[in-house]
């Protein structure tokens, strides 16, 4: 039994889940709601990456044949695509979240408004660039080999890269949350918005910051997944939305390290499902989620449940 191979497979898939859930968790920590447009923002990031490395739009859609006049290398395109996705996330916050917050409406409504924003984004993508799949050329990584051996297992270079970047982003995010003024402000708002406001922290600005960050992370993750497995049409990110929910709860709603840990655990749990039972793979992650909810609802690294939720 190649234990190592299974570990490698699980971790690399888990890294994507974790990156995805990070965005969910940032928004949840400050607002206590789930942003159902997150999957669409992830998708937007993947398309931005494709365009920025010089990809051209296919024959369908209003922008048929469009290509940017320049082509960036992948390490330049990814952060820029992240910024683009962050702008889209800010827009989502502006139209789907802020009006509700201003009216102090039931947070439940944000589930529906963000779903609406997601539906608009996905269908807008299709209207503009069509439904076909796009791929970031395998050559984008330069001269690196497609895969390399590691103690008897084989690792796809893209997946190792994904894992590395995911861990790097989480480390940077944690340092920033703990060490910077804004990071601490964000945490204070997550802890208790009203007290934070009394301490002079602009909670609206912090909410915007959380959305921007979550959009950036989603955009980069989208680009990386696009590099790893191609962009499978406008619905590409939606599948992660559901898996991300499982990861989010498993790690603990609102917990940054929890999201990553949850991602890796779900990835590993799926990898350990015997191949003959692969049809039951999804049931494993959701069964796991179900059990965690019943036994330890706050998740692995979550704070004790607030009574108001």
């Amino acid at each position: 039994m190649d234990l190592l191979q299974i570990l490698v497979n699980g971790l690399s898939v888990g890294a994507v889940y974790g990156l995805f859930a990070l965005g969910y968790t940032l928004v949840f920590s400050v607002l206590g709601v789930i942003n159902f447009a997150h999957g669409a923002v992830f998708t937007v990031g993947a398309y931005f990456t494709y365009l920025l490395i010089g990809g051209a739009v296919g024959a369908n859609g209003l922008l048929a044949g469009l290509a940017l006049p320049f082509a960036l290398p992948i390490w330049g395109a990814l952060p820029l695509a992240g910024l683009g996705a962050a702008l889209v996330a800010l827009l989502v916050e502006r139209v789907a979240f802020r009006p509700l917050r201003r009216r102090r409406a039931d947070p439940l409504l944000a589930l529906i408004t963000s779903l609406g924003a997601g539906v608009i984004l996905v269908n807008l993508i299709q209207l503009l660039v069509g439904a076909e799949s796009y791929a970031i050329p395998t050559g984008a990584l330069g001269g690196l080999p497609a895969s390399f051996p590691l103690l008897g297992a084989r690792v796809r270079t893209v997946q190792a890269l994904l894992l590395g970047i995911a861990l790097l982003l989480v480390a940077m995010l944690t340092l920033w949350l703990e060490g910077s003024r804004n990071g601490k402000g964000l945490q204070a708002v997550a802890e208790d918005a009203e007290t934070a406001q009394l301490l002079g922290i602009d909670s609206t600005a912090m909410v915007r910051l959380a959305f921007g960050l979550s959009g950036f992370l989603a955009g980069v993750a989208g680009g990386l997944v696009g590099l790893s497995v191609s962009i499978a049409g406008p619905y590409f990110g939606i599948g992660y939305g559901l898996k991300g929910l499982a990861v989010l709860v498993l790690g603990g709603l609102g917990s940054v390290p929890g999201a990553v840990l949850g991602g890796l655990i779900v990835g590993l749990a799926e990898a350990f499902v015997p191949a003959d039972w692969s049809g039951w793979k999804d049931a494993v992650s959701y069964g796991f989620l179900f059990l965690v909810l019943l036994l330890r609802p706050r998740g692995l690294l979550g704070r004790p449940l607030p009574t108001k939720v």
Partner: peptide, 11 residues
């Protein structure tokens, strides 16, 4: 809707 097949491929 799977995108990553490394488990099945390894098996």
């Amino acid at each position: 809707n799977d995108q990553d097949f490394q488990n099945q491929i390894s098996a």
